[in-house]
């Protein structure tokens, strides 16, 4: 792609990831040379239905990894488990060598693994800039006593400057003082992503970043995701659209009926027999779909 060629640094990160992953065997649960996230035996069932049953999976550091699969494959549930928004029945996973099983969601975020949501959670009754400021971690003014004593004004300036910088990057600066509720669906996705970057993450988990985004904004969102990799972050994202997956991901993990069924670079995975039959023969998934969908709705409604 021409615009990629114009940014050699981008090419290098992407190429580096591709080079490292080139020798990795194309099989489910395969070990990676430098994994940032390693999950083992993660299971979660809803009323007898196993929504997630992942025996082993690893995510390569500094790469963009796509998590794909038919509806109800358990991708979002797996996301919720990894980020502490749901509790697994069994399993453990290491993030940067630290055991994350049983760690509450807010602490997962503080440890550098930040997530976004399928149904965007921009706080619509707050201004865009306040949404951004909320993202910053280690704010003294978020402690009650310091807040009362007003010991936060200095830091607020730093936080605001950082927020403005990100807003400029995500082209939201002119919306700074607007309520987030007045933004379009795509702008909310951008805001949510920008806000998550305020936490200074090492790994960004995006749950369907393209859902509900109008085509005009899709390209810009994709560039932003690639930009994360250029800044040295690891990205794991859930996506349905295979064109998007092919365009930006270095590695693809395919889930079906709760398990990882295939892994590999985007081009190869899409020719995989198991993947094709999972997508086409979606008949068995019906029951799972219902459970997966209703769960995410409840979780996001809480």
């Amino acid at each position: 792609m021409p615009d990629n060629a114009s940014t050699p640094a981008a090419m290098s990160r992407h190429e580096e990831a591709m080079r490292i992953l080139a020798d990795v065997p194309r099989e489910p649960g395969v070990p990676k040379p430098d994994p940032i996230l390693v999950a083992d035996h993660v299971t979660r069932s809803f009323g007898g239905l196993k929504a997630v049953d992942v025996s082993h999976v690893e995510i390569q550091r500094g790469s963009i990894t796509a998590l794909v699969g038919p509806n109800g494959a358990g991708k979002t549930t797996f996301f919720n488990l990894l980020t502490g928004f749901d509790t697994p029945d069994t399993g453990s996973w290491l993030f940067n060598g630290k055991d994350l099983a049983g760690v509450p969601s807010y602490r997962v975020a503080r440890m550098g693994m930040v997530r976004t949501f399928q149904l965007t959670k921009a706080l619509s009754k707050m201004t865009v800039i306040d949404n951004m400021r909320l993202g910053a971690t280690h704010q003294v003014g978020e402690r009650m006593l310091q807040a009362l004593l007003g010991l936060w004004r200095g830091q607020e300036k730093t936080v605001t400057a950082q927020a403005d910088e990100l807003l400029a990057r995500f082209k939201l600066l002119e919306k700074r003082e607007d309520f987030a509720g007045s933004l379009s669906g795509g702008q909310r996705k951008l805001l949510e992503m920008a806000r998550s970057l305020m936490t200074d993450p090492t790994m960004v988990m995006l749950d369907e970043p393209m859902a509900g985004v109008n085509p005009a904004l899709t390209q810009s969102l994709l560039e932003h995701i690639k930009g994360l990799r250029e800044q040295g972050m690891t990205v794991l994202f859930v996506e349905h659209d295979m064109d998007v997956v092919r365009d930006i991901s270095d590695w693809v993990i395919v889930m079906a009926q709760g398990s990882v069924i295939a892994e590999g670079p985007p081009g190869e995975v899409m020719r995989n027999e198991a993947v094709i039959s999972a997508y086409l023969g979606g008949h068995h998934d019906k029951a799972l779909t219902d459970s997966g969908v209703s769960f995410t709705e409840e979780a996001s409604g809480t």
């Binding site: 980020t83 928004f85 509450p104 969601s105 807010y106 602490r107 975020a109 503080r110 930040v114 997530r115 976004t116 949501f117 959670k121 921009a122 706080l123 619509s124 009754k125 707050m126 909320l134 993202g135 971690t137 978020e142 806000r195 998550s196 305020m198 936490t199 979780a299 996001s300 809480t302």
Partner: peptide, 12 residues
Amino acid sequence: EDEDAVRSLGKN
């Protein structure tokens, strides 16, 4: 407004 959003940003 949405406690999950706040949680995802590392607030207890």
